[in-house]
């Protein structure tokens, strides 16, 4: 096959106009769709903050009403936990690259950095998402003098639930993030090697 034959095959067939649009309607369409799209993104981000704010509010109110010292410590930890969750979730979003006008290599490098942050967030879920509310709830129930049997049942239940969440996240890291990061690494390396 001659060197420029590929080009000829492509050029012969791509002369025809495939995409058509109405100039004025398109602009109206784009403006309204963009508004809708932005609103949807804002709502999604708000949902995470609202969930954290609910934890802060409920734990804060509880800390005010419950008088037992251990329960109070548990609830104050709950308030701190709410702030931590909001911080962790919003912080990782900040790194999401939204400047698509970057050269492909630079965009992929930034996108990889973002994926690594998301991966680490999931991988370390035990430290920022599971352990703090676990300690907080155990302290709360000890303070409530629920009795050793009920406390043990609660601990076993919460521990079981958290173990499930922990392994679910670990599997997400292994199945989704690691292969994607590996694929990105290969592509980025491809940019750097000419031989």
């Amino acid at each position: 096959m001659l060197n420029d034959e590929l080009e000829n095959i492509w050029q012969k067939y791509t002369k025809a106009e495939v995409v058509n649009f109405n100039r004025s309607e398109l602009l109206i369409d784009l403006k309204s769709q963009l508004k809708r799209f932005d609103r949807m993104l804002k709502n999604r981000d708000r949902r995470e903050i609202i969930a954290g704010a609910m934890v802060i509010l409920l734990s804060g109110a509880g800390a005010f009403f419950f008088t037992e010292i251990l329960s109070r410590i548990g609830l104050v930890l709950g308030v701190l936990y709410g702030f931590l969750v909001i911080y962790m979730l919003t912080n990782v979003k900040k790194h999401k690259p939204d400047n698509y006008a970057l050269p492909i290599k630079d965009y992929l490098v930034k996108y990889r950095m973002y994926l690594v942050k998301e991966r680490n967030l999931l991988d370390n879920v035990i430290y920022w998402y599971l352990l703090p509310p676990f300690i907080s709830s155990v302290l709360f129930f000890i303070g409530q003098h629920t009795g050793i049997i009920l406390l043990t049942i609660l601990i076993i239940f919460v521990f079981g639930l958290y173990t499930f969440i922990y392994f679910l996240n670990k599997s997400g890291v292994k199945k989704s993030f690691d292969p994607l990061i590996k694929k990105l690494d290969e592509t980025i390396n491809d940019f750097e090697t000419t031989t």
Partner: peptide, 20 residues
Amino acid sequence: KQFSDKKQKHFVKLESISIQ
């Protein structure tokens, strides 16, 4: 299409565009 494992959700629907 290459670096996402999530199924893309399409929220944008531009009626003013026609594609053969």
